[in-house]
Amino acid sequence: MPDFSPTEYAVPGFILLVIIEMIWARKHRPEAYEPRDTLTSLAFGLGSTVAGLLLGGMALFLFLLAYEYRVIDFGPEWWSIWWLWPVVFVLDDLAYYWIHRFGHRVRWFWASHVNHHSSQHYNLSTALRQTWTGAFTLGFAFKLPLVFLGVHPVMIAVAGGFNLIYQFWIHTEAIGKMPRWFEAVMNTPSHHRVHHATNPLYLDRNYAGVFIIWDKLFGTFQPEVDSERIRYGIVKQLGSFNLLWAVFHEWIGMLADIWKAPWRHKLAYLLREPGWTHDGSRETSDMIRERWQARQAQQPENQGQNRIADNNAIAPGEEAA
């Protein structure tokens, strides 16, 4: 059984690329980096590593338990079956797509995933804003079907590591668009900038990890539009660089909503989409997009190329001011 963690080997490369981007940004986009924001992102990365060490064993235990009930047995030399690695990588990326999609469409998962979207800046350090509470949401259960199919948990962990490494480089504004053939199949900085945007046109789009084809297949793809200037972060910004508030603010908000809600609606504040309320006092991303589209339809056609996002747009999971 191989003892290999690809992300451990990639860390020096991450650091080097951040430094290179900082040098580039100093000349071309000085606003791309904000020292306190970058320090917060680095603290997120360190904290997520510690959380993974403390809580990752729970996922490994469940995966190893499920592996005993696999329907296919690739034998003790499973790691040497060359064709199995690319197949697992693709299937793992498909599982990631659904984990990520649920992370935006179910508030229980969004309370953890919102950490990654909390920066108003988009640079390589933003990629390090990983959750501390992901294991607590049990999102890893989306990969259990792979285990039951006979994929060893170590193979899943290695595939997931390479998936995470790939996603690092797409968190940048230093790269415009890649060649058309690449943009058609792979996730790119352009596609992922859309995902991090709070503009109504872009809300809840482009969940892909490595292959953008999943978004095209499942109807969640949105290309980056030159006339739509991207705004990053969450529209109701945190207003603070306090690390603990950044990590737990949505958990606190969700629990407060559950506490105040009538009994028949309490569960919905966990399982419905972010922004949903039983009294309609806030908006979901679908509602925000529909309102924006209705407004655009009322504008004269000669203004179409100059349309910009509604300044009052709300990021998924955030409350109306």
Rank of each mutant, 00 (worst) to 15 (best):
A256P: 02
A256R: 14
W263Q: 10
V247S: 01
L270R: 03
D226N: 11
H265L: 13
P262E: 12
V235F: 08
V247L: 10
A246P: 00
Y207C: 01
D226Y: 13
G219C: 13
D279M: 11
N199P: 05
V225L: 12
K266Q: 12
S240Q: 03
N206Y: 01
R264E: 13
F241W: 12
L267S: 13
F248E: 00
W276R: 15
I252Y: 04
D204Q: 09
F211Y: 03
V235C: 12
L238N: 08
H196Q: 08
K236G: 14
G239E: 09
I252R: 04
F221W: 15
R272W: 13
L201F: 13
K260N: 08
D257Y: 04
G275T: 13
G239T: 03
G280N: 10
Y202E: 05
E273T: 11
G209T: 05
Y207A: 02
H196Y: 08
A256N: 13
L244R: 08
F221K: 02
W276D: 10
K260F: 09
G219L: 13
L244V: 14
R272F: 15
R264A: 04
E228L: 15
P223M: 05
E273A: 13
D215E: 07
W276L: 14
R229N: 03
G239F: 03
H249G: 00
S227D: 11
E228P: 05
Q237H: 12
K236L: 05
I212S: 00
G280S: 10
F218P: 00
H278F: 11
S227E: 11
H265I: 06
L255N: 02
F218Q: 14
P262M: 08
A256G: 07
L203G: 00
L238V: 07
K236Y: 15
S240E: 00
F248K: 01
W245C: 10
P223W: 00
L238H: 01
M254T: 11
G233D: 01
D226T: 07
I252D: 06
R231N: 05
E228W: 15
K266L: 04
